[in-house]
Design a protein around this nucleic acid. Structure first.
Lengths: 113, 113
DNA sequence: CATCTATATTGACATGCATCTATACAGCTT
DNA sequence: AAGCTGTATAGATGCATGTCAATATAGATG
């Protein structure tokens, strides 16, 4: 079962308890978000007007080695938060808004009426 | 600055890049969510009708030692996702819906019109 | 083809973390 | 007060992970 499917099938946390499989799948994504560098990378990509960001733009924003940034991009890609596309010498990363949306829905808490 | 304040002040990821301080604060919370056991604990508490759950109810739901559960509860409490209250011999945990709500808002992605 | 740039992979290292056992603490009950 | 139950803390251990330097790969260009 694909990760996005599991995310999509997982009820909001406040609706019913997650089973072990759902929890494992969701935790993978949150773990990816649980690093300040990855969060900043994600926000850089997510907020970029054109929708895509060249790796070189990201590397320049941090005081970290290029392999480290590359590693974080890989993690974000593996959990389905980003996709990448190579064009000529450059690789461009894009947000996968569906994944972020599923997570947001998962955390949605019912209005306390 | 309190964590919930930082969460509240942090723009949605898709609006503008997080600065280092915001990212660090937000990452702490996501890191807490990045463990399957903690996610399940959180969903058990969040979905409980009365709003509060006794530790003994949680411990029984896992095949883990009592100290391990206690550790996870502490982590969830430290990042502001849960609060606890002792009454007689038992300790009851409650969700802090504001924290979950802030996270949800943070991940909200604008509708792709 | 040789070389240069952009990005990814590998391997090493230090730190972090999930888990356990053993123990401490808090509050009840007798 | 003594003992019992529920929960937390301390300390130990093995594994995961963030980082780097070194190297590999992909594509462009001279």
């Amino acid at each position: 079962m694909e990760l996005l499917e599991i995310l999509g099938c997982s009820p909001p946390l406040a609706r019913e308890p997650l089973d072990a499989e759902q929890a494992a799948a969701v935790a993978r994504v949150f773990k990816a978000l649980g690093d300040p560098v990855r969060l900043r990378i994600l926000s850089i990509v997510a907020s970029r007007a054109g929708g895509e960001v060249c790796v070189c733009d990201i590397t320049g924003a941090f005081d970290l080695s290029q392999p480290t940034i590359s590693h974080h991009l890989k993690v974000l890609k593996e959990v389905g938060l980003l996709t990448s596309e190579r064009r000529a010498s450059w690789v461009y990363y894009r947000l996968v808004p569906e994944t972020l949306g599923e997570l947001s829905a998962l955390l949605t808490v019912p209005a306390t009426v």
